[in-house]
């Protein structure tokens, strides 16, 4: 497994930066100002495969939002993303016969599509849920909003492009309601619940296999073959925090999720693991807490499991301990939380 860190140059400028710089130019902000604080210069944007680090991308996002004072940058970036910014993958995407296939592609080629966020697909009775988490550690509130707005509008844009209309999806986001709600209305078109503990998109399975006309399976296979070859050559890495998070996620119920085990799994020392997580503005405990919290909430709301069961599966000694931990994570006891969730 290859892993990239925050300072590794992995973000394709062509894919993300060029559009932001162009949009800022429209608002009268000079490209140099948008690129300030990075090692990327205006003329570098002409280099076809110029890559920058995720830290630099976050700086550029901050600059763009601060200088243009626009709330729609992330949404425009997202709406333009599909299929134009996907390079060799666009052919494969344009020939998927349903959303399930597109989703599969997203997971296989996450690095090419969105290296900074990763998706977990979880199934419940008749429903599909996509859980989003940061692959690059903690980010500021503004950056977090930007990344989620981007990925959501890219997703909605892709569905609209292929199906001809927006499908009903439920969106939960972990931050407070924004004061530019109109952008959510127009670009996402669906009800968004803010201030949730997780970032999640849910929809009925009917849509997952809803047939998309006008696609060729053989064209898709051909371009997939190409993409896979390139993928092998380039060895698509995943974010360091994503690797740690996925380690925890796969073992969070009934298995050993200790820091030591994780370090051993990644073949690094525990101190290196701690240091690298600190470089990503996070810690093992933060990640562990978040994943447990997400698991608990999901099990509670979507799977209707009781507290005893959840506490047991998450390896708490007893329900009281679980209740206490849950209150620390969410500010609410499990009972209050469940009441609120059913009201929504």
């Amino acid at each position: 497994m290859k892993i990239f860190e925050r300072h590794d140059n992995i973000v394709l400028c062509r894919q993300f930066v060029v559009v932001l710089v162009d949009l800022a130019k429209q608002s009268g902000v000079h490209p140099d100002k948008i690129l300030k604080g990075t090692r990327c210069f205006h003329q570098d944007l002409d280099i076809p495969n110029k890559r920058i680090s995720t830290t630099e991308l976050l700086t550029i996002i901050d600059n763009a939002i601060r200088l243009t004072k626009r709330g729609d940058l992330s949404f425009i970036l997202g709406r333009k993303f599909f299929p134009g910014q996907l390079g060799s993958l666009s052919q494969a995407f344009l020939n998927c016969k349903n959303i399930a296939q597109m989703l599969k592609l997203c997971q296989l080629f996450q690095f090419k599509i969105c290296p900074f966020l990763y998706i977990n697909v979880v199934k419940t009775q008749g429903k599909t849920h996509l859980l989003f988490n940061s692959a690059i550690g903690e980010v500021s509130n503004i950056q977090q909003r930007f990344l989620y707005e981007f990925i959501l509008s890219a997703m909605v844009g892709a569905i609209k492009y292929r199906l001809g209309e927006i499908i009903p999806i439920a969106i939960k986001l972990p931050y407070k309601e924004v004061d530019y709600i109109e952008q959510y209305h127009v670009n996402l078109g669906n009800k968004v619940s803010f201030d949730q503990q997780l970032a999640m998109v849910s929809f009925d399975d009917v849509w997952l296999f809803h047939e998309i006309e006008n696609c060729s399976q053989s064209l898709k296979n051909m371009s997939l073959l190409d993409a896979r070859l390139i993928r092998k050559e380039q060895q698509h890495p995943i974010g360091f925090v994503q690797a740690v998070s996925q380690f925890i996620e796969s073992r969070v119920t009934y298995q050993d999720v200790s820091l030591e085990h994780c370090a051993q799994y990644l073949s690094i020392s525990t101190s290196t693991l701690k240091r690298k997580l600190a470089q990503h503005q996070t810690s093992y405990q933060i990640l562990l807490d978040r994943i447990r919290c997400q698991h608990a909430i999901f099990a509670m709301v979507e799977n209707q499991q009781n507290n005893e069961h959840i506490a047991n599966s998450l390896q708490f000694n007893d329900v009281t301990n679980f209740r206490r931990a849950f209150k620390r994570w969410t500010g609410m006891t499990p009972t209050v939380f469940k009441e609120q969730a059913t009201q929504h």
Binding site: Y161, G164, E165, V186, G189, N190, K191, E213
Partner: peptide
Amino acid sequence: NDRMLATKHDINNQASPNQLIHSKDVA
């Protein structure tokens, strides 16, 4: 905005098959 979403949905469903294909070509 919910009303707008519903209106658009109705329009998409009302469109005749021919128009639908056409609209997909455009999209």
